[in-house]
């Protein structure tokens, strides 16, 4: 992280001495709805709660489509089914004792102790202060060690050349990617695309730490679980009903 600091200082000096700045007078560039200028902090921890009792299979298909639309994956032409990215997938599980079948959406669980980050040799896999786990594709060398380490099969490798990516979601051949919890929307105080696509309360998004948030309040009263809780990764994505 030191390097970033140095760079920042450097730019500061550059700004002060030469007065380089974008003068946006009279020019309308891309305008953002709300602009976040302050670094995210660990006062927040973003999370999802997925209630499999309420979540229908159609909901899950809708979530997957919304994710594809928003982030631009799924249109790869050369990759085989098992090579295509899958940021979010539909799983059906049967309880061996009760025979109850539940369907759920599985994506990156945004672990608090993410194995993918621990193993990444170049710091490309990283966790933001607010708990969102991302791949810094500028640093990713495509070694796929993070894919070996992720317990949830959440990551995908881009197997072919891409173009016409979404402006907010750079993606490219030879690097690894996964669910970003729609970080570009979250930073604008919006909700992840998959959550928006579900009409019921089956999927809740919010700040796990905020005691007044719906997700926090719900988690306090209902039975919920983490997938592979035994690994102690303290995931940001929680499930109820399984």
């Amino acid at each position: 992280m030191n390097k970033t600091l140095n760079r920042r200082d450097f730019i500061k000096i550059m700004n002060a001495t030469t007065g380089v700045a974008i003068v946006a007078s009279g020019i309308t560039l891309t305008t953002f709805a709300s602009v976040s200028e302050i670094p995210v902090t660990n006062k927040k921890r973003w999370g999802l709660l997925i209630n499999t009792n309420k979540l229908t299979e159609t909901d899950i298909d809708g979530m997957i489509n919304a994710c594809k639309q928003e982030q631009g994956w799924g249109t790869e032409i050369h990759s085989t089914a098992s090579q295509k990215p899958a940021w979010i997938k539909k799983l059906k599980v049967k309880d061996k004792a009760t025979n109850k079948v539940s369907s759920l959406a599985l994506m990156c669980q945004h672990c608090e102790e993410p194995p993918c980050v621990d193993v990444c040799p170049t710091n490309a896999s990283m966790k933001r202060e607010d708990g969102i786990v991302l791949v810094d594709k500028h640093l990713c060398i495509g070694c796929r060690y993070c894919m070996m380490a992720c317990p949830y099969d959440a990551r995908s490798f881009v197997h072919e050349t891409l173009n016409n990516q979404k402006e907010h979601m750079p993606r490219g051949k030879g690097t690894v990617e996964a669910c970003t919890m729609c970080v570009h929307k979250v930073d604008k105080d919006e909700t992840p695309a998959c959550v928006e696509s579900v009409n019921s309360e089956a999927v809740i998004f919010g700040n796990l730490y905020d005691e007044s948030s719906q997700i926090n309040r719900t988690l306090r009263v209902i039975q919920s679980s983490q997938i592979r809780a035994d690994l102690n990764l303290n995931t940001g994505v929680r499930y109820s009903g399984i």
Binding site: T4, A21, L134
Partner: peptide, 24 residues
Amino acid sequence: EFLRHKRDKTLRQGIRTNEYSLKG
């Protein structure tokens, strides 16, 4: 340099101003 600096701020800290943004 500007772009690299901006990219680290955006990606790692969630600072999304349009100053030095590649989109721009």
